[in-house]
Amino acid sequence: MKPIHFFNGSYVPKESITFSIDDVGVARGYGIFDYFKVYNGAPAFMEAHLSRFENSARLLGMEVPFSREEIEVAIAKVIRHNAFPLSGIKVLMTGGNSPDGFSAGKPNLIITNTAVSETNPSFYTEGVSLMTHRFTREMPEIKSTNYATAVRLEPIWKQKGHVDVLYHDGELVSEVSRSNVFLVEGNKLITNEIGVLPGITRMNVLKMAPQLGFEVEIRAIALVEVFAAQEFFMVSTNKRVMPVVKIDDVEIAGGKIGPKTKTLMEGYSKRLAEEISQPPFQS
C-alpha cells in the first residue's frame, strides 16, 4: 500500500506534490513548518506543535488555509492509512505563487507522513559533541523553512566528528541548529528564551523539572559558561534529551554524561510514554 500525504485538500503520493518555481517559499524562503513524531499511531504533543505552527504563521503574516480541525482530520487520515510503527509528521506551508516574483500568493499546505528510524542509541549512553559557529538566526521565534546555514555547515561538523552546531554571537549562545540547550549547575537547570525557538520538548522539560527536584532559571547563557558547565544537554523532537559531552575540542565535565542529565533523560522518557499511551485518533 503506497503512503499518502495531504496537499491542499487532496490525499496523494509524495511524488504528486509539486510547487511552481514562482512560489515565494521556493524563490524567497517565505514558508513555515512544524514537525512531530508518531509512535504506533499516536502523535506526540501534536496540539502544542500545531499551536506553534499557527503562531509561526501569525508572526510571519501568513494565513493558514485550513482550520485546526481540518488539519487534525488530515493528520489522522494519513497516519491511519500509512500505519508506520515510527514516523514523522511535517506540516509545511509555503507562501504560494507570486504574481510579481516577490509578493506572496495563495499559500500551499502540505502534510507529509514519513517513516523514520530510531536515533543512534549510543548518543544516549556515550553522549555527543557539537561544533560552535558564530551566527544569529533571523526571526528565531518562527519555525521557518530557512535552514541554509545549518545545511551549509552539516558536512563540516560531520567531518569533524560532531552531530550538530551550536550557534553563538561571540558572547552568548542561542541554540543548536535544531535544538534548545540547557546547562546544569548543582540542582539548578538553566536555559535561555531570548533569540531561540520555543521548543516543545523544551516546554515539557521545563514543566517536569521541578517535579524531579530541579530549580529552573531562565536567562541568557554565556559561551564561557557552556565550556565550564557541570552538565550540558540539548532537547528537540528528534533528539529528546541528548547529553553533550564535548564542544569543539573541549570536554564537558570530563566527557561523561552527568547524573542530573540522566535523571532528566529518564523523566522525559516517562513523560513521552504517558503522552503516547492514549492515541487521540479512535476508529
Score class of each variant (00 low, 15 high):
Ile252Gly: 02
Val116Glu: 15
Val116His: 09
Ala209Lys: 11
Lys246Phe: 11
Glu225Cys: 02
Met46Ser: 08
Phe135Leu: 01
Ala220Gln: 15
Glu63Asp: 14
Pro198Thr: 11
Gly186Met: 03
Arg52Lys: 05
Asp22Phe: 15
Gly41Arg: 02
Glu138Pro: 02
Pro155Lys: 13
Glu175Tyr: 08
Ala104Tyr: 07
Val245Glu: 05
Ser129Asp: 09
Thr201Phe: 04
Phe102Pro: 00
Glu138Asn: 07
Glu141Lys: 02
Tyr167Trp: 06
Glu217Met: 09
Glu193Phe: 14
Val151Asp: 05
Thr18Leu: 02
His49Ser: 05
Ser56Ile: 01
Phe36Met: 14
Val26Pro: 00
Met208Thr: 06
Pro210Ile: 09
Thr119Glu: 12
Pro279Val: 03
Ile79Leu: 04
Met46Trp: 00
Ile156Leu: 14
Gly254Thr: 11
Val165Leu: 03
Asn180Lys: 08
Ile221Asp: 06
Val181Asn: 02
Leu166Gln: 04
Thr125Leu: 10
Glu215Trp: 06
Leu166Cys: 02
Asp169Tyr: 01
Val38Asp: 00
Pro243Ser: 13
Val250His: 15
Ile17Ser: 10
Arg52Gly: 03
Ile17Arg: 05
Gly258Tyr: 06
Lys270Tyr: 13
Gly258Val: 09
Asn97Arg: 14
Glu266Thr: 00
Val176Cys: 01
Met265Lys: 07
Gly101Ser: 08
Thr191Gln: 04
Tyr39Ser: 00
Ser87Thr: 04
Val173His: 07
Asn113Lys: 03
Pro3Met: 07
Ile17Met: 11
Ala74Pro: 00
Phe227Gln: 03
Val128Asp: 02
Leu189Cys: 04
Lys160Ile: 03
Gly170Asn: 06
Phe33Thr: 05
Thr119Phe: 07
Ile71Trp: 08
Met139Asp: 10
Phe84Ile: 00
Thr149Val: 06
Ile17Tyr: 04
Thr132Leu: 09
His5Leu: 01
Pro13Asp: 09
Val24Tyr: 12
Met131Gly: 04
Ser179Asp: 15
Pro140Phe: 05
Tyr11Glu: 01
Asp248Asn: 15
Ser10Phe: 05
Ile276Gly: 04
Pro280Ala: 11
Arg137Val: 01
Thr18Glu: 13
Ile75Phe: 06
His49Trp: 02
Ser129Phe: 06
Met265Thr: 11
Lys188His: 05
Ile79His: 11
Ala48Gln: 15
Ala273His: 02
Ile276Leu: 04
Glu118Asn: 11
Ser129Leu: 03
Glu185Lys: 12
Glu185Gly: 05
Arg240Ala: 12
Gly9Trp: 11
Ser16Arg: 14
Gly258Thr: 09
Arg134Tyr: 05
Ser67Phe: 03
Ser277Phe: 04
Glu141Val: 14
Val244Phe: 02
Lys14Asp: 09
Gln230Lys: 14
Ile71Tyr: 11
Arg178Trp: 10
Gln278Met: 06
Ser10Gly: 07
Asn204Met: 12
Gly254Gln: 09
Glu54Asn: 04
Ala83Gln: 14
Gly255Asn: 06
Pro198Asp: 13
Phe7Gln: 01
Thr125Lys: 13
Thr145Gly: 14
Glu54Ile: 01
Val151Ser: 09
His49Cys: 05
Met139Ile: 14
Asn192Cys: 08
Val24His: 12
Gly170Gln: 12
